[in-house]
Design a protein around this nucleic acid. Structure first.
Lengths: 208, 208
DNA sequence: CCTACCGATCGGTAGG
DNA sequence: CCTACCGATCGGTAGG
């Protein structure tokens, strides 16, 4: 039970963000009325404006405070393995496990692209970048030799791998021949590993 | 000059679609008022409803009749080369030349994902699929050996490559270290070629 | 945090 | 009677 009005206010604000997060993901930003947020959050529309100056401020709070990277990045720091291939593969598995059955990250980013032209993306950098950069150090001293790609390209293409898999899966989901599955994701990862590693063998013949 | 009222009607309809196409790409679907479409098209709002029953019908006409694949797919049929690497690379170059400085395709697909949950995507299959499937035949008898990936995975990861490049470029565009450029795209393609080809050499050491 | 309400604008339709 | 289109306005809802 909240004791002070301070705590009560913080709880209300948190409830508004939770409700808005879900509605934005389900319907998009412009298609989510303030009335619906207020009803589902159990407060009046006017009350919301005690916590946020504008509707867009709710969006900013959502991507800052409820963005799935809060759950995902700490997982990345736990990735271990003897070889680069093992590390990349287990990182990919972790990411997929978190992301694909809960595609909030993708929806939030697409809404940000479509409805805001990515203006809030820089807000996310300071939180995400340190984790990404530390990923590069993880490769140092591991088995396997990386081809001569710039680190930024390796990182960017790794992140892009999941967008590639997710978007093509959604766009082609009605075609039986391109059904998404763990096996297909493994093949995407194998293709990526073949792409970045020297002497990767032929991972397509040796699924793990 | 249009002679019959039939021709005039067709021109008006075409003008409405052209205007809506640009506004949807720039602002998204929900953020584009019928008033703005009507003003820019030089007709009244009421007149639009002689050509389309609802606003959503305009969207459907846009993605059916103005989708950039109308320009892109014919280009793909002109791709030639002695080796698989050459073919994939020139296909990628053609695609990028068409797409990256005119990212209509991406925006249309993202709007479709965010604001319509991809319900109209099946409409596009019948037009696009035949071209994609014929791509697989192009590889037959060319120099270079493909790794043992299913054709659907090769195709899907090729399409995904451009989504990967485009989205990560937009999301990270404010970071100088990940600036998009033709060189970076070549590296994405090299990574992909390393990924799908046996004995690709190390393309990252031998930029073309 | 609420009730009550604003200026404006939304997608869509009336009769002619 | 058709088409393409008009000026005016509908019932509801947007953010604030």
């Amino acid at each position: 039970m909240p004791r002070s009005s301070r705590e009560k206010s913080a709880l209300t604000r948190s409830r508004i963000i939770d409700v808005a997060y879900q509605l934005f993901i389900d319907n998009g930003y412009n298609a989510t009325p303030m009335r619906e947020i207020s009803q589902k959050a159990g407060v009046t529309v006017g009350a919301i404006y005690n916590h946020f100056e504008t509707k867009e401020d709710i969006w900013v709070a959502v991507i800052r405070e409820r963005h799935p990277y809060h759950d995902i990045l700490p997982l990345m720091d736990t990735v271990k393995g003897d070889s680069i291939a093992d590390i990349v593969r287990s990182a990919a598995r972790l990411l997929v496990q978190e992301l694909l059955n809960r595609p909030d990250l993708f929806n939030l980013m697409f809404i940000e692209l479509v409805e805001f032209k990515a203006v809030h993306v820089p807000d996310l950098y300071e939180a995400i970048l340190p984790h990404l950069i530390s990923l590069q150090d993880i490769f140092a001293g591991k088995k396997g030799r990386l081809r001569n790609f710039p680190p930024a390209v390796l990182l960017r293409s790794f992140v892009g791998l999941f967008f590639s898999y997710y978007i093509t899966g959604v766009l082609l989901k009605n075609l039986p021949s391109v059904a998404s599955s763990e096996a297909v994701l493994d093949q995407f990862v194998d293709l990526y590993l073949n792409g970045i590693l020297e002497n990767s063998g032929d991972l397509s013949d040796n699924p793990v």
